[in-house]
Design a protein around this nucleic acid. Structure first.
Lengths: 176, 176
DNA sequence: TGGTACATGTAACATGTTACATGATTAG
DNA sequence: CTAATCATGTAACATGTTACATGTACCA
């Protein structure tokens, strides 16, 4: 029995359904399309690509200019992806160090915490704005899946910003 | 220059501000109080405890019944925690495999995806209910920090549930 | 000709997961 | 007396991060 794909490898195979891509392109694509909820680093991609090729799920094409090495999906890769697609996705994992800081807030100076909150709030504000700017284009050129996923991001950011609003002023004095 | 604490070690030191605790108690406490946004496993806790003790940030007390080995914070540990508390928390990380499945939804059967969505929706529904049940008690006996953090969870779960509501039935099998 | 973006990869390390191994105490 | 819960730990492995090393092609 072949070991099942991990989600990271599956995401690479997912993108390769569209067309053969190089490691570089996969990093860019993944960052743009799933980076908000499934990040991967360059190192990881090249390592996973090598491992996945060794398993015969993808195969490298000819090296092009600038050492471009496009990988394409094999039939075995398509089948492995399908097996991944049949298994219930694990629950989401959230790691939010700011919430850790707030949890231990009684041991942290108020102004320090307020500064953290202010910085994070700004960041989320920007992310929401970026998502909203992207929406028309995704609606026009992306599939319903891309729209749904972007909508998740927008709702998430709005929820977080709404939460920031309600933080007791001792926790969040500075404004936007 | 001593290497700075990682957030996991910091969380253990955070709890040890309250009272000395054993690894077991730390796992339980962390799971209950920060588990929703900062999970840690038993293995990690025992390993981190050993490493943190080696650095002199905590120290083991006498082994009690059932091999209980309570750790308490040292002055160095308190100082290390304070240094951690001064550094800007990193942005949150979200890993949501369901969104991955939806992203690649055009290669996944509609009923399969619908099943995933239904299961996850149920799960989030339960989590929201649990958080809401916990709220009165936290308001009564927890600090404003605990309330803020629980409120984050509630708002997050509501946002996710709201998003589930808007997912189109046809969510799958459009392009390809 | 010099800087920037493209492009691939490795090494070392840090963090997180799963399985295994062992035993003590308590409640029924 | 026996099952559940409490309790600690290690080993092996998987995943994720950071720093390093190398070189190409384009364009201003």
């Amino acid at each position: 029995m072949t070991t099942p794909l991990n989600a990271t490898a599956a995401s690479l195979l997912g993108f390769l359904h569209e067309r053969p891509m190089t490691g570089w392109e996969l990093v860019e694509t993944a960052d743009a399309r799933i980076g908000a909820f499934w990040s991967l680093t360059r190192s990881q991609v090249y390592r996973e690509l090598a491992a996945t090729a060794r398993r015969g799920l993808i195969q490298a094409g000819e090296t092009g200019p600038r050492h471009r090495r496009p990988y394409s999906l094999t039939d075995a890769g398509r089948a492995a992806f399908q097996r991944w697609a049949e298994t219930m996705p694990a629950p989401e994992q959230i790691r939010y160090p700011l919430l850790l800081a707030i949890s231990f807030g009684s041991y942290i100076p108020e102004e320090t915490l307020a500064g953290f909150v202010a910085a994070h709030r700004r960041e989320h504000h920007e992310r929401l704005a970026a998502y909203e700017r992207a929406l028309p284009d995704v609606r026009a050129h992306g599939g319903p899946q891309a729209v749904a996923v972007l909508d998740f991001g927008i709702r998430y950011e709005r929820a977080v910003l709404g939460w920031f609003e309600t933080l007791p002023w001792e926790l969040a004095r500075q404004s936007l």
